[in-house]
Amino acid sequence: MATFITAAETACALGDTLEASLTKWREGRSGLTLSEGLLAGRIADRRLLKGRRYGAASNVAVKVAQRAVEKAGWTEEQTRSAWIFAASSRGQAGELLGTNAWRRPSKRFSASNTLHSEIAAAVSIELGIRGPWQMISNGCSAGLDALGLAHMALTSGMAPRVLVVAVDLPLVPELLKDFQDTRLLASKTLYDPLSPQTAGFHAGEAAVALTLESEGQGRGPCMTRYAANSDAYDSLVIPEDGGSLAELLAGFEVPDLICPHATGTANHAVAEINALHRCYPDVPPLLLLKPYTGHTLGASGLLDVALISEGLRQGNLPGNLPDLSHPTGISLDMPANPRRVLKIASGMGGHNAAVMLEGRS
């Protein structure tokens, strides 16, 4: 069964709204900026992160969720009965580590500000949503898993409609040092995730919200399948043969276009490409979105889905940045009128997720 993505909204390095992000993407311009020697993806309008009651991640999640629900045209009663699936890898890291004092916090909310689950709770409170909410923290696959669980809730008939939210704000000095110490953070000023010389990712901030409805109620691009598995291999790296990911992808129809996870770490650049070669005799063209947005951790999968689904909705799906590296035999050229797009995400610790998106004729 299909579920429809009826509205989407984002705030990320490409722009503070989804439409602004699409405009910059179509212009072929990256949203990454260089500041104090760090190339990263920043949300430009810092007011989106500010507020006295909630943590910064919750504040921006609420704002994009409000805009998505407004776009979807949900009535007050429809909004009230919706379910929420929210996702984040690092949650309220700025509040936990004491680096977000600039956001005008109230000490009364110090305890709730350090909870991952405050993100989902804040969306529920501020939008008046009385359906159940869940908080997913599956590393960098969290956003795609939240979307998958939303799809399952809808197709099972349990949920009348679902709001999916993902947010990560990893530009915190302590977090960046952790990534650097683990040899995951890039030191170069070019984000070329499939280059033989790639050695890490450039972090990015993002908040994303999507509304999902059943086929009878929905309109626009749809999601036709979700699946996930685990490597059961290592807490940091992926098996270089890509076996587990290939097994997961084998359950999907062959897409017209693949948007891989493609973080830019040396291990992932080998493992994910090996998985694609194991699964497909002729690997479909690839769309690499992290060079535009930075790696937004748990928000990355849902951010890519929001960008792709809106491109499909408008009948104009932009392509890759120029001059990116690609393995022999794999194309980065955008196919004409792609209809079926496969999105892949992988979380640290070996959790793989994938969803199939389809445009509607």
Score class of each variant (00 low, 15 high):
Gly51Tyr: 01
Glu253Ile: 13
His277Ile: 09
Ala8Asn: 00
Val69His: 02
Lys188Ser: 10
Leu257Ser: 02
His326Glu: 14
Gln217Asn: 09
Ala2Ser: 10
Thr75Ser: 13
Asp178His: 06
Cys222Gln: 10
Gly349Trp: 11
Gly301Gln: 07
Arg46Lys: 09
Gly350Lys: 05
Ala354Asp: 05
Ala11Thr: 10
Thr10Ile: 13
Leu357Met: 06
Leu289Ile: 11
Arg339Ser: 12
Gly298Met: 04
Val237Lys: 12
Val237Trp: 09
Gly264Leu: 03
Arg183Cys: 08
Ala142Trp: 09
Arg80Phe: 12
Leu127Asp: 01
Asp256His: 08
Leu48Tyr: 06
Val165Trp: 01
Leu332His: 10
Met223His: 03
Ala354Ile: 05
Cys222Lys: 14
Val208Glu: 01
Gly347Pro: 11
Ala44Val: 10
Ala166Lys: 06
Ala11Met: 04
Gly41Cys: 02
Ile273Asn: 10
Met1His: 11
Leu169Gln: 12
Ile238Lys: 09
Glu310Ile: 06
Ala20Asp: 09
Tyr280Val: 07
Gly28His: 05
Ala82Glu: 05
Leu307Gly: 04
Trp102Ser: 12
Gly91Pro: 12
Ala153Asn: 08
Ala246Trp: 11
Thr23Gln: 12
Leu18Gly: 03
Ser112Asn: 14
Thr263Pro: 00
Ala150Gln: 11
Arg161Ala: 14
Ser112Trp: 02
Pro281Tyr: 00
Arg42Pro: 00
Leu303Gln: 02
Leu302Gly: 07
Arg67Val: 00
Gly298Ile: 08
Gly349Ile: 08
Asp45Phe: 06
Asp181Gln: 15
Pro318Gly: 05
Ala82Lys: 04
Ala13Met: 08
Glu174Met: 09
Arg219Trp: 13
Ser106Gln: 14
Arg340Tyr: 01
Glu76Gly: 02
Leu185Val: 00
Leu169Ile: 10
Leu22Asp: 06
Pro322Gln: 14
Leu194Ala: 07
